[in-house]
Amino acid sequence: EPELVFKVRVRTKDGRELEIEVSAEDLEKLLEALPDIEEVEIEEVEP
């Protein structure tokens, strides 16, 4: 069974934007590691 992958769009407080694809596990780590995120948009990517 393929692992869930999420497309994550992040905007930081200083206005930088970042778009990455991460696994569910990595997404959890990412959110814990970035306390200064202003906006996060997450969508599931079809395998």
Rank of each mutant, 00 (worst) to 15 (best):
E1W: 11
E1H: 12
E1G: 12
E1R: 15
E1N: 13
P2Q: 09
P2S: 09
P2K: 10
P2C: 13
P2H: 10
P2E: 06
P2A: 11
E3C: 13
E3M: 13
E3V: 14
E3N: 13
E3F: 11
E3K: 14
E3I: 13
L4W: 06
L4D: 02
L4Q: 09
L4K: 15
L4G: 05
L4R: 15
V5T: 10
V5K: 13
V5F: 13
V5D: 01
F6C: 08
F6V: 05
F6G: 00
F6K: 03
F6I: 05
K7G: 00
K7N: 03
K7M: 06
K7R: 12
K7A: 03
K7S: 02
V8W: 01
V8G: 00
V8P: 00
R9Y: 06
R9M: 03
R9Q: 02
V10A: 03
R11V: 10
R11L: 08
R11G: 01
R11M: 04
R11Q: 05
T12P: 00
T12H: 06
T12C: 07
T12N: 03
T12D: 04
K13T: 06
K13Y: 03
K13P: 05
D14C: 03
D14F: 03
D14E: 04
D14T: 04
D14R: 02
G15R: 01
G15H: 02
G15I: 00
G15P: 00
G15T: 01
G15V: 00
R16C: 12
R16T: 08
R16K: 10
R16H: 07
R16M: 07
E17Y: 15
E17S: 08
E17H: 12
E17F: 14
L18I: 14
L18T: 05
L18Y: 15
L18F: 15
L18E: 03
L18W: 15
E19M: 12
E19G: 02
E19Q: 09
E19F: 15
I20F: 15
I20R: 02
I20E: 01
I20K: 02
I20M: 09
I20A: 03
E21G: 02
E21P: 03
E21Q: 11
E21Y: 15
V22C: 08
V22Y: 02
V22D: 00
V22G: 03
S23A: 09
S23Y: 08
S23E: 03
A24P: 05
A24K: 11
A24F: 10
A24L: 11
A24G: 07
E25K: 14
E25F: 10
E25C: 09
E25G: 11
E25Q: 10
E25R: 14
D26R: 06
D26H: 07
D26G: 09
L27D: 00
L27K: 01
L27Y: 05
L27S: 00
L27Q: 00
E28I: 13
E28P: 08
E28Y: 12
E28G: 09
E28W: 12
K29M: 07
K29V: 04
K29Q: 06
K29L: 07
K29C: 12
K29I: 04
K29D: 04
K29F: 07
K29Y: 06
K29W: 08
L30A: 03
L30T: 05
L30R: 01
L30G: 01
L30E: 01
L31T: 02
L31N: 01
L31G: 01
L31D: 01
E32R: 10
E32D: 08
E32Y: 09
E32V: 07
A33V: 08
A33L: 10
A33T: 11
A33Q: 11
L34C: 12
L34Q: 03
L34W: 13
L34M: 10
L34Y: 12
P35N: 14
P35K: 14
P35D: 14
P35W: 14
P35Q: 14
P35C: 12
D36F: 07
D36C: 10
D36H: 05
D36P: 05
D36S: 05
D36A: 04
D36Y: 05
D36N: 08
I37P: 05
I37N: 06
I37K: 06
I37H: 11
E38D: 11
E38R: 05
E39D: 10
E39P: 03
E39N: 10
V40E: 03
V40S: 03
E41G: 04
E41A: 07
E41M: 11
E41Q: 10
I42G: 02
I42C: 07
I42V: 07
I42R: 03
E43I: 15
E43Q: 10
E43D: 06
E43G: 07
E43W: 15
E44F: 13
E44K: 12
E44P: 12
E44N: 08
V45C: 08
V45D: 04
V45N: 07
V45H: 05
V45A: 07
V45L: 10
V45W: 11
E46L: 13
E46M: 11
E46G: 11
E46P: 09
E46Y: 14
P47S: 10
P47E: 08
P47T: 12
P47M: 11
